[in-house]
Amino acid sequence: MITFEDVVKVYPGGSTAVDHLSLELPTGKTTVLVGPSGCGKTTSLRMINRMVRPTSGRVLIDGRDVAEQDEALLRRGIGYVIQHAGLFPHRTVLDNVATVPMLLGRTRKQARTDALGLLERVGLSAEFAKRYPAQLSGGQQQRVGVARALAADPPIMVMDEPFSAVDPVVREGLHREFLRLQKDLGKTIAMVTHDIDEAIKLGDVVAIFRQGGRLAQVGTPREVLANPADDFVAEFVGRDRGLRSLSFESAADLPVRPLSEVGDLELDDAGRPVGYGSFTRADSLRLVTDLAIISPAGIAVRVDAEGVADGIVRHHDLVDHLAARRREQP
């Protein structure tokens, strides 16, 4: 667990970057610090690995004050990923990834073997190993950055806008892999972003900062969307927070109608719908709503694990379902 205890950072000249921050980042979870620029989120993040010193207050990792630990040794135990990756231009991809294990005294051979495994883990084939960072796309560099941060298997990862510098399609892919990796690895992650959608998608806990370095609200993404603490948070999470909160609702209990209700529903030989968007029980209500809205007939088709259609949902079924749910849980 990472703990901020009444942390203040005032820069020379008097501007307050972080104003009495107290926050706990739970072990094994992703905590996303999010807020507008100048809200002190990055400054706070960089206190975890002592890149920034608090003016007062303490930052503790598992109860130990980071200020009392050797800087370099502390940092070798904390994976660090930044925007644009910050890769070493003079080292191959493989040697970039091997950096921290080498610092920790592992042999070059061992570090390189491990690095090769890590590249695969972040979705890069071995052919990238011998390339230099300048030969990679932004998305590939970011993957190498993640692999480099993971190389010494640190329990903690600090990520500063790790996915901000890539285009939306690439970012989408990186998000998926991030969630997949984190499911396997269960690191304690502190991440900074200015993008509330990213925070809600990736965070187990979301900490929303406001200008002047004050914490506005901490909670699960669901809590923050459902019950914003004040107008600032409501405004920051956005007007469509109702729609977005549907991402956390499973489509598993959504009642469906028989396929026969739609006369012209076209299925292929295997029984898969043609020309209609489809969802499974594992998808979210947000996807179902989206499908129902874009479908000219106003329906979304449910499919089973093999992609075979087994029911349909109409617009008003969704409305009824949400209304019923609201009655159940006021």
Binding site: M51, A72, L74, Y80, L87, F88, R148
Partner: peptide, 23 residues
């Protein structure tokens, strides 16, 4: 030298002298 590069070297646990020589 790009500041991002020196900063990420520091954040990875390089001490000053080795950072100078290695990076």
């Amino acid at each position: 030298v790009d500041e991002l590069v020196t900063q990420s070297a520091t954040a990875m646990g390089y001490r000053r002298f080795r950072r100078l020589v290695d990076v």
